[in-house]
Design a protein around this nucleic acid. Sequence first.
DNA 1: CTGGTGACAGTTTTT
DNA 2: CTGTCACCAG
Length: 732
Amino acid sequence: MDILKDLNPAQREAVQATEGPVLVLAGPGSGKTRVLTHRVAYLVRGCGVDPYNVMAVTFTNKAAQEMMGRLHHLLGQRLRRLTIGTFHAICSRILRREAKHLDVTSDFAIYDQSDQLGLVRQALQDLNLDEKMYRPQAILATISKAKNELIGSESFEPQTYWQEVAGRVYTRYQELLLANNAQDFDDLLMNAVHLFTRHPDVLAKYQRRYLHILVDEFQDTNTAQYVLVKRLAGENSSLFAVGDEDQSIYAFRGADFRNVHRFRNDYPDARLVLLEQSYRSTQTILDVAKAVISYNIHRTPKDLRTEKGQGLPIVAHEAYNEQEEAQYVVDEIAHLVAEGTCRPGDCAIMYRTNAQSRVLEDAFVRAGLPYKLVGATRFYARREIKDVLAYLRLVHNSHDSVSLARIINVPPRGIGPKTRSALERWADDLKVPIYTALQMLREEIEGSRGGEEVTACLPSYACNVLADFAELLGELIAAREKLSVLELLDLILDKSGYSAYIRDGTEEGEDRWNNILELRTVAREYLDLPPEAALTTFLEEVALVSDVDSFDEAVNAPTLLTLHMAKGLEFPVVFMVGLEEGLFPHSRSFNDPEAMEEERRLCYVGITRAKERLYLVHTFRRTMYGESQVSVPSRFIADVPDHLIAGREEAQAALGEEERRYRWQVQWPVTSGPAVTVQFETGDRVRHRLFGEGIVIESKVTGADEEVTVAFEEEGIKRLLASFAKLEKLNG
DNA sequence: CTGGTGACAGTTTTT
DNA sequence: CTGTCACCAG
């Protein structure tokens, strides 16, 4: 059968194991996407399974699209009845379909991170809480974490006072979401699970449908996703999970690679398939990767191998500082290109933090060479895009007060905070949504042209601008049913004055306008759908899609990207820069072994992106936060055996024994935990010579010292270094 | 309602 | 050293 013909034995085994649960542990470059697509094709073509009974979950929309494309190619037909998409997209579709069982209607809005933050701020305000003490970011992280663990606001159990407050914000936040007829990203997952818990009949319906469930990137699932899959699969579906523990790099977002182990526990008779043959990297690169990852304790050892041969030793380079590091990379690429080794587009430069891209960009600009920068500011996070989308969302769902708040004065139309809060108070008194209040206001004004007082005690100027705004919205909403998304977009841009507002003649304005034009191109894709469906689908996809400007393969220039964004990609030549203790591994992981393991996995991901050539670059000194500091080379470089690094063995041999030991100590000393032990922890009562008594809020190790944040009774919150501050502990 | 100033924090972010 | 954000004066 031709679907199986270009698969190796392990891949074929995975594809053909259609009875019972299967877990595939796939090394980097071992063809896991291939296995996934071929399995779907095999089910449909080889086993006569109706695509309607198959669900394939990917981690990005891009991956879903690619898989669709490959299936089309493989089968020569489009599988329209196949369920394929991200967890969020699939859940959102289910929730809309089953909205009658939920507290929202089927046209609920989906809130992204910045919408969520806005809502958290509002919740904090409603509860009269101080944003300084309760950082919206931190609160949101707590809420998100809870939701990922399927803990609703009603079952949230605080461990500390701070968490008790966070729990109250959580409750208020959920009320606000509901009032706005909205769900946030995490809700999509949690509520899908809750829906299935509360309505076994609904669950049964989906279980009957999805007889084959395939999950990609299984190591990056969170609890909610794991439970969801398990529920959906039930007793009868064949569950197929593909992943690689060593590439789990999203723990900070709730992902837990232990789900791989959980899977093995929950399904003891699951068939385990290991894909260990790499079709990507040379043996040397695989050996480097293996050496680095082998220091992790929590993993299943794998024996990665390739038929590509040993290849070249990797290069470890020390630059003087970050400017020279960037220059080295640019020069090296220019050199490789000049000697015909590779094309510029074959090269990628990877770094731990986005901030590092600046210096690299500078170097390319100065050299007059083009480069591609992947996703610093994401397209859909751009202000102008969010603004225009807010208009569309509001037109679609007039209860969406977050969107309303966003654009009520954008472009400026004289509705300041004062007018706005008066309007809010009035709407609150009448117990109607703000949009309804706006329309009522407009009617009253039209009814009383004479100018007598209106019920809402607002100054007449405010009344007029608000009425104008209400009229604009009314007009747009009325147009919704007749117009395509594209026409609606144009109407909004025109009537609201947004295009005039954005195109202010500056270069930046023109950039922003171009982004809006980009959005118009996206909208054009929805032209053949009927208006209402088009708007819903458009907003849905736009909310769940990360970046349209995901990088352009066609441009032949080096790619600059963070290590996280590199996952799933491959390049013939890879430069990993900034391999220094504190930067990579990042200092925040120093006192947390689990976080350190994740840094190591991140390093593993970076290394295994390389097909032929790998450069590990670090600096002698680096400027951080305006201060130049001598840097210590990353432990990850030290973990690479000398014989895999070009010139390293000779260099080591040339050094005398004593010097070698010296270098070992100075350069790679970081074998155990942090040098500084933490003396203070949250909750400790302390006394300071000048500031008096207080309570420790936070304590962390920074560099060679401990930084303690203390809330003093008299002096407020201070940040102190333990070695200078001479803090006295009071609670014994 | 703007624009300016000061305080402050400063990983990663497939959805 | 940066960028962001809250707050205040014009």
